[in-house]
Design a protein around this nucleic acid. Structure first.
Lengths: 146, 146
DNA sequence: GTTGTTGCAAACAGTTTGCACGAAA
DNA sequence: TTTCGTGCAAACTGTTTGCAACAAC
């Protein structure tokens, strides 16, 4: 299963426009940085790498928050406390995360809507959404060693 | 669906013993505190409340980490960044969280094992586990107001 | 008695904020 | 030109750690 193509930069501008916010060189650079790896990066990674480009720490934080709101970035839980952010296309997707190398593959069918309906009926909850993350070890990391 | 009964304190001691760790008055008090509410509490709540009993902040942190490792506590994501910890029985359970009042109901059947098998076959991942959390508004919070 | 646990305070890590300057529309 | 975004540094919040006193086994 190959990683679905994320947006290229030319499609990015309209997203910012739609949100009535500016498409700056920093914001593009930050998004490009995260889009560079299928496993994404932590904010710390991004800050370290983008400092060289003269992009400040605060801007990275503010932009990551923004990109997540725009559905251009999604976060997954790393082994530690820190989150890793991955570039993604919008829609209903969940991450399948490799705990060894950090590689992330997204999948759509989580089959939870049936469970939600049944829970809703049993408990009276009005279900608004769910958070799902599956983790394990990817083929490359499993094969051979470990 | 009523909340399944969690362990009472008399069953607690063996769990600590099995983990070769001590069953102290502080640890019991901290577990009791979280067990008191079906919605659980944040660490900040616990620190504030248990300070009166002379239990220090560091102990609360260390103990919560321990209790989670012992499967006596599980955390859910609050609206903000802070986690909320709820007392729970061990086993495969997931939280259904009310975002309005914080009430948590646990459920077991998440139906994800079929999804995992199919993903595993498609991607070659060795799946080790998953994190699932469903959120919404509970019956009490939905009914009438809001 | 031995060893793990606790409380305190100080150290840390990650994140947010105020403000003057600079760049997008 | 106007307004929003940026960089910097300082402030914050939540969490971890070192160490002497203490309690569980």
């Amino acid at each position: 299963m190959k990683q679905t193509k994320t947006w290229d930069a030319s499609q990015l501008r309209p997203v910012f426009r739609k949100a009535r916010t500016r498409f700056t060189t920093q914001r593009e650079a930050i998004w490009r940085f995260f889009a560079r790896s299928p496993g994404g990066f932590t904010i710390t990674d991004a800050v370290a790498k983008l400092k060289a480009k003269g992009i400040g720490l605060a801007t990275v934080y503010r932009t990551v928050t923004l990109l997540e709101k725009l559905d251009l970035l999604r976060h997954v839980h790393d082994k530690g406390l820190e989150h890793r952010f991955i570039a993604t296309q919008p829609g209903h997707f969940h991450p399948l995360v490799c705990r060894s190398c950090g590689h992330v593959v997204e999948f759509d069918a989580c089959g939870l809507s049936a469970v939600e309906r049944s829970l809703s009926a049993k408990t009276g909850f009005h279900v608004e959404g769910h958070y799902v993350e599956i983790y394990g070890t990817c083929a490359e990391c499993t094969g051979g060693r470990k």
